[in-house]
């Protein structure tokens, strides 16, 4: 059997067990909601959530599109800003010393607490949401990129210097690929934070999106729809994370974290 086939089978096995787990969870939930007669506004059973969702989903799709675009755009801006910044910082100690205190200060400020201020500055609409998503996902990407870029072993850099190579080539062939695993770690952390940031921004500047709907449903005690919205939000987060992971698997397939079977670890000695 080919290695690829084995991997596919192993992957579906993971899926199968996961599906069984969720099925059991939903069954227990459904049954106990009925058996213990839990009011629907406290904990609606999965079937009720599903029925609510089926009735109201067109409105939710519009909101989901709004939220998703905030997340994706904010996340993209964070990537475009923080990775080049990490490169600059990794090359220049003075810049690192000048910029880092500012970044740490920015990171320590609870950004969610200053979210209302964004509304004063930028009004409602896309801008305050983008800003919050950007701010929350920016830092983990930056820090992990710097860590990766600065952790190239000295010996390999010495080797590169002894070839008379240009720094651009060393960056392209050694530094950047070396730092990719760290960069992706940062991207994955940022991906989950980006979703949270978008929702919080929509709570505060409530004019659109799933966060706004969530507040509305909660206010009306439409708990079924609250659950449906949370599930929708989780799906967005999971898809974003899975996309980052998919890219990671293809870009840094050589890294320790991506290796599969132990049988191909060591040949001979």
């Amino acid at each position: 059997m080919s290695r690829r086939m084995q991997r596919v089978i192993a992957a579906t096995r993971g899926w199968r067990d996961g599906i069984i787990g969720f099925t059991v969870l939903f069954l227990v939930w459904e049954v106990s909601a009925h058996v213990f007669k839990i009011p629907k506004y406290i904990l609606p059973p999965p079937t009720v959530i599903w029925a609510d969702l089926m009735k109201r989903y067109p409105r939710m799709i519009d909101a989901a599109i709004a939220t998703t675009s905030e997340i994706v755009m904010g996340f993209a801006i964070a990537i475009v800003v923080s990775i080049p910044l990490a490169v600059i910082v990794s090359y220049s100690r003075p810049i690192e010393r000048a910029i880092f205190p500012i970044l740490i200060a920015l990171q320590i400020i609870p950004k969610i607490a200053i979210a209302p201020l964004f509304i004063v500055w930028f009004g409602f609409g896309l801008m305050p949401k983008l800003l919050l998503v950007f701010l929350l996902s920016f830092f983990p990407i930056l820090v992990s990129s710097i860590t990766g870029l600065k952790s190239v072993p000295r010996d390999i850099l010495d080797l590169a210097r002894s070839t008379g190579s240009t720094e651009l080539m060393v960056f392209r062939k050694i530094r950047l690929p070396h730092s990719l695993p760290s960069i992706f770690t940062g991207l994955k952390v940022a991906a989950t934070l980006a979703t949270t940031a978008a929702i919080v921004a929509e709570f505060v500047a409530s004019d659109r999106g799933l966060g706004y709907m969530l507040l509305e449903f909660n206010g009306n005690l439409e708990t079924g729809m609250v659950f449906a919205t949370v599930i929708g939000l989780s799906l967005i987060g999971i898809v974003l994370y899975a996309m980052v992971e998919f890219v990671e698997r293809n870009v840094v397939s050589w890294h320790v974290s991506q290796r599969d079977a132990p049988e191909k670890q060591l040949i001979g000695s």
């Binding site: 010996d155 080539m169 062939k173 690929p177």
Partner: peptide
């Protein structure tokens, strides 16, 4: 060097050829 410091993302031949690639 004391440690091989090979690049994880390159094959063994690719690592050997790194030397000449860096030398353009």
């Amino acid at each position: 060097f004391q440690s091989p410091v090979l690049l994880d993302w390159r094959t063994i031949l690719g690592n050997v050829l790194l030397q000449v690639e860096l030398r353009r």
